[in-house]
């Protein structure tokens, strides 16, 4: 690794200062505020915050609504991850079988990742609108087939599809890169050994994608916990009857609608710990997994 040396330390300080400032303003300061709020309770009639230790957390953990939110978040995270990675893998396997010009549609497929979540939410809200959208044709043919406004599982399905659509592209790129890095001679050797394409995929390609698979698993789960706000906000606002009240959305609801800063802060600390531990698993175990040479 190359290092740059500066004669005067203050030049170095000057160069990194803007970055440090941004990190401080947008990360450390809000985080420390959240920490402070999570351990304190605002007095009902003003007069400063009272230090309450773990009372906010204890309250949360005994709150059924909180556990309900954890439950739907977990369902959302697992389903989104499975759907996104499954689709991505299938697309990548097709792309890897040397469709001409795959480089151009690789760019096409990364775009969804660059689209802001609320925009995706709006687009899918139209697609899945039971009375006006594409789904209305389904309802016309089979009355009451699709009603995400009243039916919780329909709403959840809708949010999961939108979330997976957003995430599929990222996984696709990694799966495709993983497949392309498998030497062609390996699948050729398997072909000489008598294996048909499906067999080669099961015996050679998929096992060699294992490191990529675990990497994407962690990334996708983390993403679906933290990056689902825009989709929920535009599509369901957490409803109906909290069926899609994911953890990130509940933090926003409790904090900004319910004005319960302390409860929201405690929830965001828990979510942060969750994400940090996923990242830790990622670094500690997944990155260190055997890479075949």
């Amino acid at each position: 690794m190359r290092r740059a040396y500066f004669k005067n330390n203050w030049i170095a300080a000057l160069v990194v200062a803007p970055q440090l400032l941004i990190i401080f303003v947008f990360f450390y300061w809000p985080s420390s505020q959240a920490l402070y709020w999570a351990f304190t309770l605002e007095q009902p009639w003003g007069g400063g915050n009272e230090w309450v230790w773990f009372e906010n957390f204890a309250y949360l953990l005994s709150d059924d609504r909180y556990w309900q939110s954890v439950r739907v978040s977990t369902v959302y995270a697992l389903a989104t991850t499975a759907l996104a990675m499954g689709m991505a893998l299938i697309l990548a396997l097709f792309a890897d079988r040397q469709l001409r010009g795959y480089k151009s549609f690789r760019i096409g497929l990364i775009w969804p990742y660059a689209v802001a979540a609320p925009a995706i939410g709006l687009a899918f809200r139209f697609i899945f609108n039971p009375s006006a959208g594409v789904a209305s044709y389904l309802n016309y043919a089979f009355p009451d087939f699709w009603d995400p406004i009243m039916n919780g599982s329909h709403a959840m399905t809708m949010v999961i599809i939108a979330g997976a659509w957003k995430q599929v592209s990222y996984s696709f790129i990694f799966f495709l890169a993983g497949l392309q890095s498998i030497p062609r001679s390996l699948t050729e050797a398997a072909a000489m050994d008598g294996a048909r394409p499906m067999r080669r995929m099961m015996d050679i390609q998929l096992p060699l994608l294992t490191p990529t698979f675990f990497f994407l698993l962690v990334i996708n789960i983390t993403d679906s916990f933290t990056d689902s706000f825009g989709i929920v906000d535009t599509m369901t606002s957490g409803g109906p009857a909290r069926a899609t009240n994911l953890m990130v959305y509940k933090i926003y609801e409790d904090g900004f609608r319910g004005l319960d800063y302390s409860g929201a802060a405690a929830q965001s600390i828990i979510l942060m710990i969750l994400v940090i531990s996923l990242t830790f698993i990622q670094f500690r175990y997944v990155e260190r997994r055997v890479h075949y040479t």
């Binding site: 050729e188 072909a191 000489m192």
Partner: peptide, 20 residues
């Protein structure tokens, strides 16, 4: 014919062993 139908075995330059 597919490779498997030709009855040939091949040794590759980089050996192409299955690493896993």
């Amino acid at each position: 014919l597919e490779p498997r139908e030709r009855g040939c075995a091949m040794v590759f330059q980089n050996y192409a062993l299955y690493p896993h």
